[in-house]
Design a protein around this nucleic acid. Structure first.
Lengths: 235, 235
DNA sequence: CGAGGTATTGACGGCTCTCAAGTCTGGTGG
DNA sequence: CCACCAGACTTGAGAGCCGTCAATACCTCG
């Protein structure tokens, strides 16, 4: 992936646009505090496993990570994707409910949770930052749940809009994840994802130079509800 | 149906209205620290509204609360139900993404978020408790998302198992919320909820003395997957 | 070029939504 | 006491979206 080559460009773009998100390797909480050890993970390598002790907290320096859970029947739920500056692994209790894997080759800052919590105890600012990260994660997961009650077209549209805000260069999204990853995140099948991509392209909302590249042509159309024939507002 | 006060009214209430008298249930974090002011809310009264400033944090003393979001097309998503000891209103940013309403007559501890954060800055223990509450909420919302990718029977079963763990007396659940509330939480229609209740009762997994009372007869059956004909494990 | 994984497209069936009618319950008033 | 009503809940029939299975196209890499 040519993601590394694109990064400086994106960084400039974000600054110029006043983008509030995270970019580069210096913007994360851990990075700013100089905490944690950067480590490299190859594509599809597991970073932490479901059921393992929650010993570390992670921050993406660059690359992309997915958190996931395998259901007893084999289905796979992807809880979220994390990009540069995002923190993951914030979990309650002693054991991970979700495992995490690198979607593409990635660098991840790894830090002992106990140490981080300890430092936060003596640093008001860091403690508050941690709480902010946690509440932000709550909002993100809520958004995920909200998406899951919509239909396939709405789900994929929301996903693309979100990716547009998080990892797009202007209107161009280079997806690090596969169709299967997207499907498992949106709670639909890979076939439905594929069909819906085609529908959105036919509607001129997006353009697909290739399977992993999406050009957003009409964000407004993606944000608006697709024609839902009989889907009357209930109540 | 108490009237829902205007926002300024509510704020004034929060500011100077103190609830006098003995309060049962000292189970929550705020209660243990003696923080916040207990207030009463009638059934269906709004506690905080979507789009309002995030000024307070709430803890249920007794009763039940739902957090919800109204979609542009009128659909309603219930993010979660909160019972005695549960904290809600932990949100990121300045504005609430979710509103909260009392499901039944309830008593809620209300506390200024800024004050709580401030106190946590000087109290290691409280700060850690707050972070635990936040990560626990993350796990809960993840569980909600996980439920939303399953079929109707699995969704209702999970919901009942969860209620069984949170508000049941032995195997008896007295539901404070309506079928519509359940439907909007599970992301299905009220008819599907109703039909699925009937199916579970026919299967002897539960018994329904009346619509708001559920007797769990076979938790194992509720936890196990229902017959999903062609639902092969993918991948 | 061929191989293998990934993605798209097609046909069909089932689960759930929609629309509609029926039942139950609690409250009100004659 | 009972008729009546309003609201919540249940049940039924038909339609549509999406899952399943299957075949085909595309893309990357040896």
């Amino acid at each position: 992936m040519a993601m590394d080559g694109l990064r400086p460009e994106r960084e400039e773009l974000f600054e110029r646009n006043g983008f509030r998100g995270h970019i580069g390797g210096q913007t994360g909480v851990l990075a700013r505090w100089g905490l944690g050890v950067p480590m490299k993970f190859g594509a599809d390598v597991e970073i932490c496993g479901e059921g393992e002790p929650v010993d570390y907290v992670y921050e993406v320096v660059h690359g992309a990570v997915r958190t996931l859970k395998i259901l007893p029947d084999g289905r796979r739920q992807i809880g979220g994707f994390y990009f540069a500056g995002d923190i993951f692994g914030l979990e309650d209790g002693d054991l991970h409910c979700l495992s995490a894997e690198a979607v593409a080759d990635s660098t991840i800052r790894v830090m002992r949770r106990r140490v981080l919590i300890g430092l936060a105890g003596g640093d008001r600012d860091l403690a508050q930052q941690l709480l902010v990260m946690a509440t932000r994660e709550i909002a993100r997961v809520h958004g995920h749940a909200l998406m899951l009650i919509q239909n396939a077209q709405e789900r994929l549209s929301s996903f693309l809009v979100q990716m547009g805000e998080r990892i797009a260069i202007r209107d161009l999204i280079v997806l690090p994840m596969s169709r299967q990853d997207i499907a498992d995140h949106l709670g639909v099948t890979i076939e439905t994802v594929s069909r819906t991509f085609t529908i959105l392209e036919s509607a001129s909302a997006i353009k697909l130079p290739n399977a992993r590249t999406v050009l957003l042509r009409d964000r407004a159309a993606l944000r608006s509800k697709p024609p839902r024939p009989g889907a009357a507002a209930r109540r």
